[in-house]
Simulated scan of single mutants.
Amino acid sequence: MSSTYLIALGSNRRHHLYGRPQDVVLAAMEECAAFGTVTARAPVIATAPMGAAQRRFANGALVLSSELTPTALLAALKHTERAYGRRPGQRWGDRVLDLDIILWSGGVWRSVDLKIPHPAFTQRRFVLDPACTIAADWRDPLSGLTVAQAQARLTRPRPLPR
C-alpha cells in the first residue's frame, strides 16, 4: 500500500561532487526518487543558521509517494545522509545533508527513532516556508492545522511588548 510523505531537506556545507548547499539539496531531491515517486518539489530557499550551525542553510521540501513504511523510509533517508558525508555530531551543527520526515498520510507514527509529525515542524520557518509551496493544505494530525495555517501562526506580526 502506498503512503505519501512530506520530506524536509537542508544543507549548509559544500559537497565534493554537488557543490554548494542549494545544489546538494537539489541532488538529494533526485536521490529521493529512488524511494518512490516524487510528486512535488518546493523551491530551494536560503535560511539563517540555527543553533550551533555557523553557515546559512539551503532548505527545500518534497512530497513522496512510496511503498516504504515510515521506519523503512527513515532508514533509507539516513543511508542517503551518510552517503552524502553526514557524520554524527553536534545537534543543529553544520551538515552536508539533513533529511526529515515531516508528515505522513497515515497520520501519527511514534517509535524510539521516529516521530511523525516531526515534533518541531510547526516552529520552523525553514520547514514551513518551502512546505507551504507544495503542501499548504496538508493537515497536522495532532493540531488539525494545515501547513499554511501553521506557517501563518509562525509568521504573523505580533505587537511589541510594552
Rank of each mutant, 00 (worst) to 15 (best):
A136R: 10
T37I: 13
R13M: 15
P43M: 03
G19T: 12
V112T: 14
Q54E: 15
A42S: 14
R82K: 15
G10N: 01
A34H: 08
L99T: 02
V127I: 14
S2L: 11
A135Y: 04
L73G: 03
R56N: 12
D137M: 10
I7T: 07
T71R: 13
A120K: 10
L114M: 09
A75D: 13
A28T: 08
V108I: 15
Q149M: 10
A33K: 12
A76Q: 08
A34K: 13
V24C: 06
V147K: 00
A136T: 05
L6V: 13
N12K: 05
V25I: 11
R91V: 14
Y5N: 00
R20W: 11
T69A: 11
I101M: 14
S105Y: 02
R87E: 10
V38A: 03
D140I: 07
H118Y: 09
D113R: 11
R13V: 07
L73Y: 01
V96S: 01
R124M: 05
R158Q: 13
V108E: 05
M29C: 11
A53M: 05
N59M: 06
K78T: 11
R41P: 01
P157V: 15
A52Q: 11
P161I: 13
I116S: 04
S143D: 01
G107L: 04
Q90M: 13
S3F: 08
L64A: 03
A52N: 02
Y18G: 04
R55F: 12
Q123F: 03
K78F: 06
G51D: 04
R158H: 12
K115M: 13
P49L: 10
W92G: 05
A53N: 03
D140M: 03
R110A: 12
S105I: 06
A75T: 12
R14K: 11
W138S: 02
L99Y: 04
L26W: 09
G89T: 10
T80L: 15
V24M: 03
R153D: 07
Q22E: 15
L77Y: 04
P70A: 06
T122H: 07
P43D: 08
A150C: 12
A150R: 01
H118N: 09
C132W: 00
P49R: 06
S2F: 13
A58D: 01
A42D: 01
T155Y: 10
W109K: 05
A34F: 03
Y18V: 11
R82P: 04
Q123L: 07
S66P: 00
L9M: 13
I7M: 05
H16E: 12
S65H: 12
A8V: 08
Q123R: 15
L103K: 06
R82H: 12
W92T: 07
L77E: 00
R13Y: 03
F35Y: 10
A52H: 12
L142P: 02
T146I: 10
L114F: 11
P130F: 00
L62A: 02
G93E: 01
Y18S: 11
A136W: 03
A27V: 08
L142I: 15
T37Y: 01
F126T: 03
R95L: 06
A48K: 11
N59L: 08
G85M: 05
A53F: 05
A76E: 06
R162T: 14
V25C: 09
W109E: 01
V38D: 00
S66M: 02
